[in-house]
Amino acid sequence: MTQQKSFQTELIKGLWRENPVFVAVLGLCPALAVTNSLANGLAMGLATLAVLVGSSCLVSGLRHFIPKPVRISVFILIIATFVTAVDYVLAATLPDIHKELGAFISLIVVNCLILGRQESFASKNPMWLSIADAAGMGGGFTLALVMIGGVREVLGSGSILGFPLFSDDFVPWVVMVMPPGGFFTMGLLLLIMAFVTENRRRKT
């Protein structure tokens, strides 16, 4: 691979072309579990983004000192430290959202997206590229969560960010804010993605 890695390409690839949720289908548990409203999706996305950037930065800074055989444990230790910090910060600043997300903030530790980025990118690349990669992937994750959360909130509660969208005679599709709605929304969005990709491939 002679392709020059630049800050911009690393930053942009995670947002859409290699979107962690829609293309790589990683980090599904939080992507579906907490996205019953746009605000929750956004909070979860930003929390994950913060953990991802923090741990990528530290892992790539320490990459020459981490012994290969125990690297996974070290990554998990670093990630868990950042998650604990984010957990406490959220509890102190946004107690309502923290209560709503509950155990899922702690479960960021086992989000395969974060460990995957450490293993495949941050542990092999210089710090500023790793930060770009983490910010891009975290941004893409947040984008996906906001999309899922948005669709579910509009259909399930008939509102967006708490503001009602429709007139009073709109009957909300309650199922969309319940667990099955998460699966359906995700399946639908993946179907649309597949449709768009297929169309583009046919044109070229």
Partner: peptide, 8 residues
């Protein structure tokens, strides 16, 4: 996509 809809 199909797997998600089945799961739903």
């Amino acid at each position: 996509a199909l797997n998600f809809i089945i799961a739903g």
